[in-house]
Amino acid sequence: MVRKFLIFILIASFSVIFINLYQNFKGQDKLNDLSTYYAENEPQELGAQNLVTSIVVTYRGFDTLGEVTILFLAASIIGFFLKIKESDKQKKRDLRKTSEILETASKILVPLIFLLGVYVFANGHLTPGGGFQGGAIMASGMVLLLLANPEKNVKHSLFSGIESISGFTYVILGLLGIYFAYGFLDNRVLPLGQFGNIFSAGLIPLIYTFIGLKVGSELTNIVGNLKETQKETE
């Protein structure tokens, strides 16, 4: 009980720090100069409608590269961490028959979800959304499939294949930025195209598709790994 009380005091004093932090926080009335710059000449420089995507993919593309590596590392760590020992593979598990509704619903829903996912990361630079969101949607679609028929398993080699290839091409696209444009991960390799339609804003859509594929396959991998270990114990 004393421990709980002690923790309470700790949190109270921690909140004191944050209160001081907020002290001279005043609501902003106008954009600071960094975002005004982005707002003004992003259309001429990158030609993407969705400002957030342009920042995420090009201006701060290096962060996204880091971001993708985190997911990649998380996936590979979980990969070798929860490795299934060969001996446990054969153990069968008593399957609870999935309900009828789930099976039929998944047959209809899964293609729709995939379509939505593709749409989201295809025109990430036009409408809100992008690689991460599209990939996540695709992954949830895959999970739905896994739920629907539990005895089937994720083909790890396929997904890690997609993942690596898309990652590798992402890096190559970045390098292209150096040779053809002004810097690593610059999107002016391809023409900016007409503002607003699908093939505009240089490399952004291309990069985002690859990120989408990569995130999608990684998350499926992670879920697959977690699911498989389930088999291990049955």
Partner: peptide
Amino acid sequence: PDVAMTEAAIGSGLTTIIFFYVLNKIRK
């Protein structure tokens, strides 16, 4: 909007699924 979509897809979607998988396995 971007962040909302991500949060929805990843936050509520995938995280909860992973949690349930792990919980399921631990209880089993």
